[in-house]
Design a protein around this nucleic acid. Structure first.
Lengths: 141, 141
DNA sequence: CTAAACTTGACCATTTTAGTCAGGTATATA
DNA sequence: TATATACCTGACTAAAATGGTCAAGTTTAG
C-alpha cells in the first residue's frame, strides 16, 4: 500500500486551485507559497495531473493552471491514480505468475487484502474535490 | 500510511499458527516452510507479537509458539499495531508542534485523512483472526 | 549432553521517497 | 520586440524505509 506525501500534496494543491481558479489561472508559485510545497515538486505533480486531464495549463505571463473538470467530478481516486499512488495492498494480485509466495495457490490472507482494497477504494471513489471544499470552508486559512 | 509485507506476513503466520497450535506448539521452521517466509524474518515478527502478548513462546525441543488469546479476540488492528504497521495517513497528526507544513493552522486536507484513518481502522477492528480462519477453510492449502 | 527451537541485536543491499537542479519553451504585456 | 513570468522535462540525489541476513547466544526436552 502506498499513500504518501505526493498524493497528499496533490490533493492539497487541487483544493487550493479549486478555490482560486474561478478568477485567474493559479500559478504554482502561489500554490507553493500558500501550501508550503516546493515549486519543483509541484511541477512534477502537476505534470501528472495534466496528463490525466485533471488540470489544464496556461503558459506565459499571468499563466498557471485551472481545473479541467467540475470539482464534483474529480474524485480522490482519480487524483491518486494520476500521481501513481497505488492503493494496492498485495503484490500477489498479478494472478498471471502462479499464486503468492511462489506457491500454486493463493496465500491464505488473499481474500482479506482484496476486501481491504475495496473498502479503501470505495472511500476514495465517493469523495470528490467538491466535498473537500465544503468541508474546509470554516477552517479556511 | 504503512501497510507492507511485514504486516501481511504477521497475519499469514498467525493464521497458520491458529490452525495448528491446538495440538502442539508451532515452530517458526514449520511456518516458514508452509508460508514461504524466511525464519530470520519470522523471528523479528514473532518477537514483536510476543511483546504484545498475542503469542506465547515455548522454548526447547518441541517448542514453538501458541496463541495467547482466543482467535476471536485477536483483531487485525492488534496485529498491525504489534508489528509497527501504522495506519497513519499524515504526519500532521501531532498537534503539539504547530499545525501541518509548519503553518499555524491545520492543512486543508487534514479532516480528510482523519476520516480515512477512521475508515480503515474500523475495518481492522471488526476483523478477527477467527474470521480469517473461517474465510479460508475452503481455499485451504 | 545435545539437538531443537527460541532470543537478541547488529548489519546490509535495494528500493522508495521526497525532493533539487538545470536547462529548456511559450506567451502576455509593456 | 524585449523580457519577465510561468510552464515543461529529465536527470540527479540524500535520506529513509523495506525486507531481509548473520552471528552469537539461551533454554529445555529427551
Amino acid at each position: 500500500m502506498k499513500l504518501t506525501s505526493k498524493g497528499r500534496y496533490a490533493v492539497m494543491a487541487l483544493v487550493d486551485l479549486a478555490r482560486f481558479d474561478d478568477i485567474n489561472p493559479v500559478s504554482l508559485r502561489d500554490i507553493s507559497l500558500r501550501q508550503g510545497i516546493s515549486i519543483d515538486y509541484l511541477e512534477q505533480i502537476f505534470s501528472k495531473l495534466k496528463k490525466n486531464e485533471i488540470v489544464k495549463s496556461i503558459r506565459g505571463t499571468q499563466g498557471g493552471y485551472v481545473l479541467n473538470k467540475n470539482p464534483n467530478d474529480i474524485k480522490l481516486t482519480n487524483i491518486f491514480h494520476a500521481v501513481d499512488e497505488k492503493v494496492k495492498t498485495v503484490q500477489c494480485k498479478k494472478e498471471s505468475k502462479k499464486g503468492c509466495n511462489g506457491k500454486a495457490t493463493k496465500c491464505i490472507t488473499h481474500n482479506l487484502w482484496d476486501e481491504l482494497e475495496i473498502h479503501i477504494n470505495t472511500f476514495f471513489e465517493r469523495k470528490s474535490l467538491k466535498d473537500l471544499l465544503n468541508n474546509n470552508k470554516e477552517t479556511r486559512i
